[in-house]
Design a protein around this nucleic acid. Structure first.
Ligand SMILES: [Mn+2]
Ligand SMILES: [Mn+2]
Ligand SMILES: [Mn+2]
Ligand SMILES: [Mn+2]
Lengths: 219, 219
DNA sequence: TTTTATTTTTAGACAAGACTAAAATAAATC
DNA sequence: GATTTATTTTAGTCTTGTCTAAAAATAAAA
C-alpha cells in the first residue's frame, strides 16, 4: 500500500508531533530522519497529494487521520516485532531496534494479527513503549521522567525515552531495567544530577540519564 | 549488503540453474521474474560488475561462487520464515510464500541464527523443500516426481514442485500433504494421468498434478 | 524599518530499476 | 548459403527518492 520511504516519513512525523505542539517543521523531519530538508520538502509534498498529511508551504506538516493511522500501524508492527525478538528469540533489548526497523515494513495484516496473538497481545514493547491495538488505540499510562520526581520520592522504572544501544547498555551496567524500583536520595539543583538507590546500591546519575528514564510513582 | 532487487535476481538465477543445465538465458530470467528481457540485461550486467555472476553477451548468465552463496542464503531465510509462519503462527502452507518473499530480505545474520535455533533447526520447509544450513549446504534427498513412478509402486509424499496457493489448495481438498502415502493403481500412457490410492480412497489425478508432487519410494 | 540570518523551497542532477522501441546477434528454415 | 525468425542488447525515457546549489520566504537583529 505504501512505500518504505513513505512509511518512515509518516512515522517520523508522528513522533515529532508528540514531541512538541504545532506543525512539524521541515528541518525537524530532516534531522530526525538523517536526510536533507530539500528531500523532506519533496516527500511531504507527495504525501500531501495523497492526503496523508496537510502541508502549507513554509509552515510545516500535520498528519491527516489516514496518515496518522498508517503511522500508528507501522509503530504497532515495530513494537510487536521487538517483543518477538526479545521474548522468543532472546535478543537483548539493545539489539532489537535496527531489526524491527526492517520488520515493521512487512506488509500483511494477517501476519500481525497472528504475531500479536502468538505473543499474548502484549501491551508494551521491551523498552516500555505502549503497543497500539488493532484499531490504533494507544494505552496512555501515567508516567514521568525520573528527572521530574523529587528527593525522597520512589518510582518504578516503566520505560526509556531514548533507546539507543549505548544508553540501554549503560542501564544494564547499572542493573536498571523495566520494573526496577528507584528511590531518589538526593538531587542537585545546579545540574539536575541525582543520587539514587536501587536495592541496596546507591549511586550517582547525571541529568542526561534522569531525563531519559520513565518512572511511575506508585501511590 | 545487497539490494532487494539484486537478491531476487540471484535467487531466480539460482533456481533456473537447477532447472536446466548450461547458462541461464535472459528470457528465462525475465519470464520467471515477470519482468522484461531488457531489464534483465541491465541487471545482470550490474551483477557481473559486482562479480556475483559471469555474463557473456548473448550467451546468458552463470552464478559465481559468491553469487550462489548470496542466493542460497536468501533461500535459507525464505524457508526458515516459512517454517516459522506455519509452525508458530499457524498459517496454512498455501499462505506463507508471499509473506516469506518479503521476510527473506531482512538483513541480520544473528536474527536467522536465532530463528533457526528457535525453530529447532528444521531440515525442510512446509513444502518439503530442504533448508540450507549456515554454510549453504543443502541436504539432497532421494525423491522423484509422482509422474515418474510406475503402476503398483508406492511412495510417500515428501514435497511439492510448484507451490502456488491454487495447487496447494487442490492437494488439501484431496487430503494430500507431506507424509501422505500414495499408491499408483493405474497410469494412462497417453496423457500420463493416474489412478491413485490414498488410505481407502481411490481417485483420478491428471499428469499436471503428478508432475508437481515429489514422492519417496521407500524400499 | 532595514538589514541579516535562518528556514524552506525550487531547480537541476543522479542512481536504481523498470519500460518501449529499435538495433544487433544468433538460431532456424528454405 | 541466404533469408526469415527468435533472442538479446542498446538507446532513450520514466518514477522514486535522494542530493547540491541557488532562490525565496520568514524570523531575528540592528
Ligand atoms: Mn524500537
Ligand atoms: Mn522503528
Ligand atoms: Mn516459498
Ligand atoms: Mn521466495
Amino acid at each position: 500500500m505504501f512505500t518504505l520511504a513513505e512509511e518512515n516519513y509518516l512515522k517520523a512525523i508522528f513522533h515529532l508531533e508528540h514531541e512538541s505542539a504545532g506543525d512539524v517543521s521541515t528541518n525537524a523531519i530532516a534531522e530526525s530522519m538523517d536526510t536533507k530538508p530539500s528531500s523532506v520538502t519533496d516527500m511531504i509534498q507527495k504525501l500531501a497529494e495523497k492526503k496523508l498529511l496537510v502541508y502549507k508551504r513554509y509552515k510545516g506538516a500535520q498528519l491527516s487521520d489516514t496518515g496518522r493511522k498508517v503511522a500508528i500501524n507501522v509503530i504497532r508492527k515495530h513494537r510487536l516485532w521487538e517483543v518477538f525478538l526479545v521474548e522468543k528469540l532472546n535478543f537483548h533489548w539493545d539489539e532489537v531496534h535496527e531489526i524491527a526497523e526492517q520488520l515493521e515494513h512487512i506488509q500483511s495484516e494477517e501476519l500481525i494479527t497472528r504475531l500479536d496473538k502468538f505473543l499474548g497481545s502484549p501491551d508494551f514493547d521491551p523498552h516500555g513503549d505502549p503497543i497500539p491495538d488493532k484499531h490504533g488505540v494507544l494505552k496512555r499510562t501515567e508516567k514521568k521522567l525520573l528527572s521530574e520526581i523529587e528527593k525522597n520520592q520512589k518510582g518504578v522504572c516503566v520505560g526509556v525515552k531514548e533507546s539507543s544501544a549505548e544508553f540501554l547498555q549503560y542501564l544494564d551496567k547499572k542493573k536498571i531495567s523495566i520494573g526496577t524500583k528507584i528511590k531518589v536520595l538526593g538531587k542537585e539543583f545546579f545540574d539536575g544530577s541525582m543520587i539514587i538507590q536501587i536495592g541496596n546500591d546507591q549511586f550517582f546519575i547525571s541529568n542526561k540519564i534522569a531525563e531519559n528514564l520513565y518512572v511511575q510513582t506508585q501511590e
